[in-house]
Amino acid sequence: MIPASFDYQRAASAEEAVSMLREHGEEAKLLAGGHSLLPLMKLRLATPSVVIDVGRIRELSYLRDGGDQVSIGALTRHRDVETSELLQREVPILAHVAGLVGDPQVRHRGTIGGSLAHGDPASDLPAVVLALGGTLVVQGPGGRRDIPATEFFQGFLETALAPEEMLVEIRVPKARGGWSYQKFNRRAIDWAIVGVAAVRNGTTGVALVNMGPVPLRASAVEQALAGGASAADAAALAAEGTDPSADLNASVEYRQHLARVLVRRALEEAGA
């Protein structure tokens, strides 16, 4: 498998990446770790004429304690998120789930920003950032803006990123309360057939993996919990508002069933 030809450009900073995006428009793709883009290019499902390598922007790889939140540079690799003592202490669900992405080799290259910007509903990290109520910081020609995670994922592989914008930082609130991540798949390396992230942090945030064209919050579950419902009763509402697709691994009905079971298990484990 060989990608189609393209021009390769390397950005030294987010500003430079954004100006390259401006210059090349929709023909260009940003390349971070490459684990979302390169597989598509090898299959020639993606044929950008310009690839802008942002993988060298070291200043976008960091984990910072920001008081009541943690700021993570978009180019921080999964492996660094997984092993971050700061996250293990302050946002343990995020460190844990970063360790479930792909396989070790993928985690050595793939980045949290790449995973979120790709916006795959089957991917683990978007749901976790959603459940945490995180914020995504993007940089465009006019400077930076914040986008709440709840508004970031807009359609299948579509995000609130404008063509000339780049994701530069992810902020998540510290969440040392109970949490659970339920990843249901057939092989360890596979995408989740259904996944559930639950975080207790004052209120309980619950988000679903692969239950629709976008990563979703289980709003009905959250509201029921906020209204005092038991974990079991709240979990029964897990499929409300979801729009899962059918594929080789699961029918719509089975996914909805799994969502209910896994949300219940997640809430029980998180102590909600």
Binding site: M1, G34, D53, R109
Partner: peptide, 13 residues
């Protein structure tokens, strides 16, 4: 020093 899948990385990277 870290394992990567060399089929999913450009030589340029």
């Amino acid at each position: 020093g870290e394992s990567v899948k060399s089929c999913t990385m450009l030589a340029a990277q």
